[in-house]
């Protein structure tokens, strides 16, 4: 017998492979799995706790039939004593997001296409990618401060719809830029080559083949970015102002605009108790909007991976 075999005899003198079911290792294995299951429950329980809290007081606001409730919650202005609905915030958020998307998405998607398809990999490309990675990680309040310093103060745009939505657009750029690049990178090189080999121009290859193939990925990134900025409060505090009605002008106090996240913040810190309910209602509505967008993004991206695998 070799040394090895003698050694192994020492470790496990039993010739058979039968081992008592309740050995220490089996037990540890079992306990470890149970423990991790409990950890998972702990991790996801806040989701339900938050949902229950928000829905407890918010449900009657969004789906009730009282004054300023149900559909009226979204269609009436706060009015005297803020007893009405949150039309100002609802419309404000929609307008802010619409303008932010109209500015931010084309800039970042087309920018990403240029960077990925038309430039050679090199220092400049890496610098752009790195700075947008950094920017994607910058706290939202820093974007708010930048929007305030640049748009409101430096460009004299003043607070309001324009400054607020442009700040949100700036926030979208790094995220959408990077996700678009990622989606473009997933498109196999051979697809582009096949198109070029047919005599197509670079532009028509990019537009008709590459971008189309990357489209689901791009849309997912765009939706995720929209969902993210929709819930942002901090960038709007110094750039959008607040208002009890919807903006009527492009500059000046007439352009000040409310948003749902800002309204939640303002209402929660208000001593009037019934505003807590309004805050819950707004939070529930905001959560439903954001989660719906997230869900769509999720479904699209799942379809994408299913197609790619």
């Amino acid at each position: 017998m070799s040394t090895l075999e003698i050694l192994l005899q020492k470790i496990d003198p039993r010739p058979g492979f039968r081992e008592a079911r309740k050995s220490r290792r089996h037990f540890t294995d079992y306990v470890f799995k149970i423990l991790l299951g409990i950890v998972m429950v702990v991790i996801i329980s806040p989701f339900f706790l938050v949902l229950i809290e928000v829905a407890s007081a918010g449900f009657s606001q969004v789906f009730g039939f009282g004054q300023g409730q149900g559909i009226e919650f979204f269609t009436t202005f706060p009015g005297a004593g803020l007893l009405g609905g949150i039309r100002n915030a609802f419309v404000g958020t929609i307008e802010l997001i619409a303008i932010a998307s109209a500015v931010g998405i084309p800039l970042s998607v087309f920018g990403a296409v240029y960077i990925n398809e038309y430039t050679r990999p090199g220092i400049s490309r890496e610098v752009i990618e790195f700075t947008s990675d950094v920017l994607a990680g910058i706290p939202s309040i820093v974007f708010g401060a930048f929007g305030f310093a640049f748009l409101v103060d430096f460009l004299h745009l003043g607070m309001g719809l324009v400054s607020g939505s442009l700040t949100l657009a700036f926030m979208m750029i790094p995220t959408v830029l990077r996700t678009t690049q990622e989606a473009l990178r997933q498109v196999p090189m051979s697809l582009r080559e096949a198109s070029l080999a047919l005599g197509a121009t670079k532009w028509s290859t990019t537009w008709n083949v590459t971008l189309r193939a990357a489209f689901p990925g791009v849309i997912t990134g765009v939706l995720l970015a929209i969902g993210r900025v929709m819930g942002e409060t901090a960038p709007l505090i110094f750039t959008a102002g607040n208002s009890l009605s919807v903006p009527t002008e492009l500059t000046g106090p007439g352009s000040w605009v409310a948003s749902m996240p800002y309204t939640i913040w303002a209402y929660v810190s208000d001593p009037r108790a019934y505003l807590q309910d309004k805050a819950h209602g707004t939070a529930l509505a905001l959560m439903m909007m954001v989660l719906a967008i997230d869900l769509v993004a999720n479904l699209i991206s799942r379809k994408v991976t299913r197609r790619l695998v």
Partner: peptide, 23 residues
Amino acid sequence: IKMIVEMMAAIPSIVYGLWAFLV
């Protein structure tokens, strides 16, 4: 579970703030 975790990431920070402040 993955879906719930992803939805948790999507909940706006102000909503978490509201829950934390009141609960």
